[in-house]
């Protein structure tokens, strides 16, 4: 299997195609937008929260398959998470991409991004939605301090 085909396995295409959580919450309790200056890709995340936990998650993503798959996966897993859980998920993906570390059991789906490890310029594609989520939650915690 060529490197390109390995990266674009069916799971990535399925998650990207499903586009879970597509849209924008209005009103929202928290929001953040992250951009990839390399290509102009953009992820907009809006959240509703209850006592610091996500009750609703929406994403609008303009990006490649990796970015859209990550945003779609996050939309399925984000409800119920708090800032610490979001940070842990983001760290799990960072460690998978940077060091090849297996993701924790709760985040086994992240393994679909493992072939991207060899392509450093693509790490940010998968991480962009996770960074948007972290920023949105950090914005709330800063406001509350």
């Amino acid at each position: 299997m060529s490197a390109g085909a390995e990266l674009y396995q069916q799971a990535i295409k399925d998650w990207a195609g499903a586009d879970h959580g597509h849209g924008r919450l209005d009103p929202a309790d928290a929001a953040a937008r992250t951009d990839n200056p390399l290509c102009g890709d953009r992820v907009q995340v809006t959240l509703r929260l209850d006592a610091g936990r996500i009750t609703a998650f929406a994403q609008e993503t303009r990006g490649c398959l990796l970015c859209r798959a990550a945003a779609s996966l996050l939309a399925q897993r984000a409800p119920g998470m708090d800032a610490a859980a979001a940070a842990a998920a983001s760290t799990a993906l960072e460690e998978l991409l940077a060091e090849g570390r297996d993701p924790p059991p709760a985040w086994q789906d992240l393994a679909m991004f493992a072939p991207a490890r060899s392509y450093r310029s693509r790490h940010k594609c998968a991480l962009l939605p996770f960074r948007a989520l972290r920023q949105a939650l950090e914005g709330v915690s800063h406001r509350e301090q």
Partner: peptide, 21 residues
């Protein structure tokens, strides 16, 4: 198709092209 994805597959075929803005 996103340019990054296109360029990634092209790279696997020995083709160096740039995708982005």
């Amino acid at each position: 198709l996103h340019p990054h994805d296109i360029c990634q597959v092209l790279d696997a075929h020995g083709l160096a092209l740039r995708g982005g803005h």
